[in-house]
Simulated scan of single mutants.
Amino acid sequence: MLKSKTFFAACAAAAALSTPVPAFAQLPEPVRAMIDAAIASGDEAKVRTVIELARETNPGDAAEIDAILASYETDLAAKAEADAAAKEEAIRTAGLFENWSGKGELGAFRSTGNSSNTGITAGLALKREGIDWRHKLTGRVDYQRSNGATTREQFQARYEPNYKISDRLFAYALAQYERDRFQGFSARYSVSGGLGYDVIVEENMSLSVKAGPAWRRTERIGGLTESNLAGLAELDFDWQIAENLALTQNASAFVQEGSSTFLSETGLQAGIADDLKVRLSYAVEHDTDPPAGAVKTDTLSRVTLIYDF
């Protein structure tokens, strides 16, 4: 009986030894070198293309190639996570004057309405994106002198902080200063706060809307000062039509007792260099109850160069 058991054990051992053990085939050295070179380039699209070609031309080595791809994807995910963590930490520890981006604008304008003339225009827009907060600073000047007299003088400056409640919903605050003697006021101050929503968030298109209560103080040229409660609604639309062509549309409405203000500005900009663009824009501003002697609607056509920084 013992001999029978020994015989069967020996047979089983011999059978086990004769069964092939699964193992990766040896990937040809030129193929491995090609994959390693693609990975070293840091170009993910190139890596995936090379690996797919290697799999098609070396079907017997598919398992080893899949293992290389899995290892690459693991390293890629780890690097992306590390980069995201480093970026977030850099944003959180940035100083007050760091992480700002913006654009400067300089050109000419043509106006009709309360004044009909051609002059110079300049603008500056700054933006700072944080983890929870977003800050926007903008300023614009339109100015002209003719025969020793100022025939156009319009200034606007505004600051808008946003707090991100969710991926798309945000709360905003707004402080704005304007001066336009030809519309009948030496200064107009506006403050507002409310909610906004990013309706469209795509790589080539964005649409944001916001609304809330507002307060406005207008100092008229003649010395009269008015303060009013108002409602503010704004729309900001950007569409990257092509690589070097973009359409922008901004609209706002201050609705109040007395003179409400409606503004619409449409722009078309084209890239002419890496950080340089040319922009054509057309703005319409309508005041429902302007001072005596002023017309209700002003239009402004601008041709400007924009430098991104």
Rank of each mutant, 00 (worst) to 15 (best):
S4D: 15
K5R: 15
K5Y: 12
A9F: 13
C11H: 02
A13G: 08
A16V: 08
L17G: 09
T19Y: 08
F24L: 07
F24R: 05
A25K: 10
A25Y: 03
Q26G: 09
L27V: 14
P28G: 03
R32F: 15
A33W: 09
I35E: 01
D36H: 11
A38K: 02
A38Q: 04
A40L: 06
A40S: 07
G42I: 05
D43I: 04
E44S: 12
K46M: 13
V50M: 01
V50L: 04
A54G: 07
P59L: 06
D61T: 06
A62R: 14
I68N: 01
S71N: 15
L76S: 12
A77I: 08
A77F: 10
D83E: 13
A84K: 13
E88Q: 13
E89F: 09
A90W: 09
A90K: 14
I91D: 04
I91F: 00
T93W: 04
F97R: 07
G107V: 05
A108D: 03
G113F: 06
G119E: 04
A125W: 03
L126E: 06
G130P: 04
D132Y: 09
H135R: 07
T138R: 14
T138Q: 15
G139V: 05
G139F: 04
S146P: 03
N147Y: 12
G148T: 12
T150A: 11
E153Q: 15
Q154R: 15
E160C: 06
P161W: 03
Y163C: 06
I165E: 01
I165W: 11
R168Y: 10
R168N: 15
F170V: 02
L174H: 02
Q176L: 12
Y177K: 02
F182S: 05
Q183Y: 08
G184W: 02
F185S: 02
F185A: 01
R188I: 00
Y189W: 14
V191N: 11
D198A: 13
D198I: 07
I200M: 05
V201D: 14
N204G: 00
L207M: 10
S208D: 08
G222Y: 05
G223E: 12
E226L: 14
L229G: 14
A230S: 07
A233R: 04
E234D: 10
D236S: 10
D238N: 14
W239G: 02
I241Y: 12
A246S: 15
L247R: 02
Q249H: 11
S252E: 09
F254C: 00
L263A: 12
E265N: 11
E265T: 08
E265C: 00
G267Q: 01
L268N: 01
L268F: 05
Q269G: 03
A270V: 09
I272F: 01
K277R: 14
R279N: 13
L280M: 10
L280V: 11
S281I: 01
Y282W: 10
H286A: 09
D289R: 14
A292W: 01
A292G: 07
G293Q: 06
L300F: 00
R302I: 00
R302F: 00
V303S: 07
I306R: 01
Y307Q: 13
Y307G: 10
D308K: 14
